[in-house]
Design a protein around this nucleic acid. Structure first.
Length: 580
RNA sequence: GGUCCCGUGGUGAAGUCAGGAGUUCACGCCGGCCUGUCAAGCCGGAGGUCGCGGGUUCAAAUCCCGUCGGGACCGCCA
């Protein structure tokens, strides 16, 4: 039907008779004998000069055959890639008329209520921004596939109907018709299957896998999302990190044309100490500073005896933050679990040095003030925020404040990838049993140097688990897995899981290891998140063709919908009336 | 489960704090004029249950209560 794409026409084609197909964008009519029509397809727009009085309206679908010609002197449009030429002597074929769209099919729809964009997603997708995002996504998928294939990985599909597993994210359940009362689950990840592929001798597996989790939605979370899922046999952590790095950097290069620097590494403990979070955003400073020593012998009660005292400095923030805003920051800090927040404004002292304006200044000695100014490297006009508490909450609260105050939108600025390694094996404790909980999952390899601390100090045991972080978003995580039973038993013991319980909960998964599980490890990273950041979006819905809203609905199809009573009955289900 | 923000012709906004006739602006739509525009221009016109329900009031887009929908975040996401 067509010889060229609209956006591809250039002065090279001058004199050629071409056919293009697309949608009518803007029209500029000058009476019966002259009209300019911008014809649009996914490649861009081209101006067609129509000398008939043919009636073409917004979003009509046309096939136009005409001659490419140079635009007359003074009518070149530098804002368009096709702006040097136009199509004249146009023969217009209306392939389909159209009712006017509810919103303009151009950048102005960026401001349209997202619900309306999603209701008419097929129109939204016609826009340049969405076309660009879909193509970036496709390029990332292709680059990742190429990269994995180049590295000797084998693409294997795993089932979508899987057994329900006891722990982890809430699953979507699928009722079985043949066995009423029984359910499949949709996979929250292919974890079980990929590790068994290693037992199966696949050696290097990957899959662009759809994962489903019935958890609340966010800017970076959808019910369904895509992961580059991979697993490798006979490897250590470096092998996995290198393989993942290669595919991520290949994908980034495919989109931006520039290969990022090798990805730096930081330990979990350093990340917490310096940034107060396990997914640090390295694009800006404001690092946490250590103040524990500076207040080692303080009389100030809020600081005395605290396990950790740390601060962050807001450059020039003294004037910017009034009492009102400081109160809000304090509320936020308390909301995050802090006992309180100490703020100090650096002002000029009588001796030319720095002293601090603060409600607590009077409790601090001259030595402490000097130590604080030095440790924070505070200059006149700076705002210092200090938290004193146990080590982890101190870090977390300041990390939250650091992000709150200094963090740019996720897509902005340079791309800062970072590996966070040596995550703790256990994180927190179960509210009911008091047992430690797995940081990553129960099959994660403990750090070999820490194995003897299992019983004496379990919470300090590190693991061979790692996250990949980009601009403060967790792209993904992985670990080296436990492949031999004695170590697995010790980890289960640390988690408070007995042999019987382990057999009951995880037997189906671990018993196959008895037939010879190779040492193995793997990783999975979220493609939606990577694509969103590479596309300059701060919301993964913008890079998903048909996303759901925060309440899990699709305004275009109105799903979820009530189940057909017959179908429900056939599944052996009965709907319980909702009680509020 | 919680905190905060938003909902006004097809679209985007102003109006809401401080109640007084569905008022205004831009885009779009319909009709007319117009042979070099590109956010075309000029003239005219149509189009709204101010998300929904209740309350207060002589009077509600505006105040109060509830509810629905959207968004950001906390919880949750081994």
């Amino acid at each position: 039907m067509r010889t060229h794409l609209c956006g591809d026409l250039r002065p090279d084609q001058i004199g050629d008779t071409v056919s293009v197909c697309g949608w009518v964008g803007r029209r500029r009519e000058h009476g019966e004998h002259l009209a300019f029509v911008d014809l649009r397809d996914h490649s861009g727009i081209v101006q067609c000069v129509i000398n008939d009085d043919i009636d073409v309206r917004s979003e009509y679908v046309l096939r136009i055959t005409g001659v490419v010609r140079e635009r007359p002197e003074g009518t070149i449009n530098d804002n368009l890639p096709t702006g040097q030429i136009e199509i004249g002597d146009c023969e217009v074929e209306i392939l389909r008329t159209a009712t006017p769209p509810p919103f303009p099919i151009d950048a102005r729809a960026d401001d349209v209520d997202e619900n309306i964009r999603l209701q008419y997603r097929y129109l939204d997708l016609r826009r340049e921004r969405m076309q660009k995002n879909l193509r970036i996504r496709s390029a990332v998928n292709a680059a990742v596939r190429n990269s994995m294939a180049d590295q000797g990985f084998v693409e294997v599909e795993t089932p979508m109907l899987v057994p329900s597993t006891p722990e982890g994210a809430r699953e979507f359940l699928v009722p079985s018709r043949k066995e009423p009362g029984s359910f499949y689950a949709l996979p929250q990840s292919p974890q079980l299957f990929k590790q068994l592929l290693m037992v199966g001798g696949v050696d290097r597996y990957y899959q662009i896998a759809r994962c489903l989790r019935d958890e609340d939605l966010r800017a970076d979370r959808q019910y369904e999302f895509m992961q580059l899922d991979m697993e490798m046999s006979f490897v250590d952590q470096d092998d996995v990190l290198e393989a993942v790095s290669a595919s991520v950097l290949d994908a980034a290069e495919a989109v931006t044309g520039e290969r990022p620097d090798p990805i730096e590494r930081i330990t979990w403990r350093d990340a917490m100490n310096r940034f107060g979070i396990d997914k640090p955003d390295l694009r800006f400073g404001m690092e946490l500073r250590e103040l524990t020593d500076a207040f080692a012998s303080t009389e100030f009660k809020a600081f005395a005896g605290a396990e950790a005292i740390k601060g962050i400095k807001v450059d020039g923030g003294a004037d910017e933050y009034g009492r009102n805003q400081l109160d809000k920051l304090t509320d936020k800090a308390k909301g995050a679990g802090a006992k309180g927040l100490v703020w100090m404004k650096a002002v000029a002292g009588d001796d030319g040095g720095v002293r601090f304006d603060s409600p607590v200044a009077k409790f601090l000695s001259d030595d402490e003030v000097a130590g604080l100014a030095a440790a924070m490297d505070a200059a006149v006009g700076d705002l210092v925020l200090i938290v004193a508490d146990d080590w982890e909450p101190t870090c977390e609260v300041l990390g939250m404040l650091r992000n709150e105050i200094g963090r740019p939108p996720v897509h902005q600025g340079p791309y800062r990838y970072v590996w966070v390694v040596e995550f703790p094996l256990f994180v927190g404790r179960d509210k009911e049993t008091g047992n430690p909980k797995s940081g990553h999952h129960p099959f994660t390899m403990p750090h070999p140097d820490d194995v003897d601390k299992f019983e004496s100090d379990p919470m300090s045991v590190r693991s061979i688990a790692y996250d990949l972080v980009l601009n403060g978003w967790e792209l993904g995580s992985g670990s080296i897995r436990i492949h031999e039973p004695e170590l697995q038993r010790r980890v289960f013991a640390g988690l408070g899981i007995s042999d019987e319980e382990a057999e009951r909960k995880f037997g189906f998964f671990l018993n196959p290891f008895e037939y010879g599980a190779p040492p193995h490890g793997g990783f999975a990273f979220g493609l939606d998140r990577l694509v969103a950041i590479l596309a300059g979006e701060d919301n993964i819905r913008e890079v998903i063709a048909y996303p759901k809203t925060q309440s899990g609905q699709d305004p275009m199809t109105n799903s979820p919908t009530a189940g057909d009573p017959k179908a429900v009955e056939e599944l052996g289900l009965r709907i319980i009336p909702r009680v509020d």
